[in-house]
Write a protein that binds this DNA or RNA. Sequence first.
DNA 1: TTAGACGTTGACGCCGACGTCAGGACAAGC
DNA 2: GCTTGTCCTGACGTCGGCGTCAACGTCTAA
Lengths: 139, 139
Amino acid sequence: MRIGELAARAGVSTRTLRYYESRGLLPAADRGANGHRVYGDDALRLVAQIRTLQDFGFELEDTRPFVECLRAGHPAGDSCPDSRAVYRRKIAELDELMAELRAARDHLTAQLARAEAMPPPCGAGGAGGGRGDVPLCGG
Amino acid sequence: MRIGELAARAGVSTRTLRYYESRGLLPAADRGANGHRVYGDDALRLVAQIRTLQDFGFELEDTRPFVECLRAGHPAGDSCPDSRAVYRRKIAELDELMAELRAARDHLTAQLARAEAMPPPCGAGGAGGGRGDVPLCGG
DNA sequence: TTAGACGTTGACGCCGACGTCAGGACAAGC
DNA sequence: GCTTGTCCTGACGTCGGCGTCAACGTCTAA
């Protein structure tokens, strides 16, 4: 299987596959006499593993233990301790991030409620009206 | 007030202030005879507004309505309808993002539990052991 | 007069995961 | 020979928000 076929079957671009190779994630099994990359069927699983993890927000580097685990012949990318450690780290990161987002969301909600409780500004909008003017209503 | 003083008082770099100006967010009130930027005290409030919103995850462009609202003379950055619309959009974005993250988190947690329920691989670790070998235990 | 602290503009660097050329090689089919 | 299709390598572009450097002008204190 050459790079074009693997790309088509995996649903990624050839550029993506070459990029993975440049990162040491997915070296071609071999090179043909013409220099073309040659892949085995297992490469398809490796790409699928990478894409799955990326869909969950993994950076490319975080997929490495999973890919190496598969390449070592293990039945699944997460069969190895290193992979599971990444799982745990990612879950912790997500928890932390979600806590931050929740805090931000709550704060914004409070701000919005407070702002909407204020009397409406008169010349408001895109601030295109009275530049530098006093915002008070006509008195 | 020149750029250095404003930067120090606002806790940002002069580069940051020039960048804001280049984006049309924070034009200097004037230029001295030597070409130096001159700011009024109100600039400090504008920078503070920008940084506050950025801390909540706003992109620079999303702070624009707030800054323009302040520049128009309104008492607060969120006194204008445009600003409040951004609040609402941001809250919705946060809700959507958090839902995605929750889904990812739940999936990862399930995957981790499933992986840990499996028998431990023998040559596991960094996959540095038996390259391409069968992962089954000795027998 | 000179040093040094401040200011100016312009331009490149960075991160991540590629997209998109540019320029060339090689094979198959007409 | 020519086109078409696939492949190769190398290198620049993208996005956001600046950091950092270059090369220069300006103001002030000693």
